[in-house]
């Protein structure tokens, strides 16, 4: 089974990747460090997963070569589970990409990464409620020190595709 790590540039996908797989890919505190994809492997309860660290992309309409790699990756892996990594302090932008991926019918898990930075900026997110509305697992993480990663792993099996209608309904329908 394949797991894709997707999200905006510099939200810590590669850090999550390193924590998940124990592999070592280069991470930096600036966007665009990963320009090609990296594969790694992890074992959860005897099941093998291939984890792919995808270059950061703002949306599924690619603008540069690294983003093209990302979108192509997603299109090639039709039956993959996507872990959408977002910067909690910029959650709205992150949700945009998350919704795009959900709409394409992928089972998605949302990792609210950089949770600590959001708290520093006094942004409070009700993760449970978000989970309820989106109908997908939502896990706050601080990848840099490993917090929430275990939770993230245990929720991979719970991810299922969600109809956009369901989400619309929960927030009061389409206008």
């Amino acid at each position: 089974m394949k797991v894709l790590l997707m999200g905006h540039p510099n939200v810590g996908k590669s850090v999550v990747f390193n924590r998940l797989t124990g592999a070592n890919v280069i991470i930096s505190n600036y966007p665009g460090t990963t320009v090609d994809y990296t594969k790694g492997y992890m074992k959860v309860k005897g099941k093998d997963f291939t984890v792919i660290d995808v270059p950061g992309t703002f949306s599924l309409e690619a603008k540069d070569k690294a983003e093209e790699v990302a979108v192509k990756m997603l299109e090639e892996e039709k039956d993959a589970v996507v872990i959408c990594v977002v910067d909690s302090s910029k959650i709205e932008r992150g949700l945009y990409l998350t919704l795009e991926i959900i709409e394409r019918g992928y089972p998605v898990i949302l990792a609210l990464n950089m949770w600590d930075i959001a708290q520093d900026k006094s942004i409070h997110i009700d993760a449970e409620k978000l989970e309820n509305i989106l109908g997908i697992p939502v896990i706050p993480t601080i990848a840099i020190n490993g917090k929430g990663i275990k939770d993230l792993v245990s929720k991979i099996k719970d991810a299922t595709p969600v109809e956009t209608d369901k989400i619309l309904e929960k927030v009061g329908g389409k206008e």
Binding site: E103, I123, I133, E163, D165, K174
Partner: peptide, 23 residues
């Protein structure tokens, strides 16, 4: 079902109104 760009932002606004408090 696919949303248009505006619909998507609209949805995000609604979601964030219910789940996020910006201090």
């Amino acid at each position: 079902m696919k949303l248009t760009v505006d619909e998507r932002w609209d949805l995000i606004e609604k979601i964030s109104k219910e789940t996020v408090i910006f201090g």
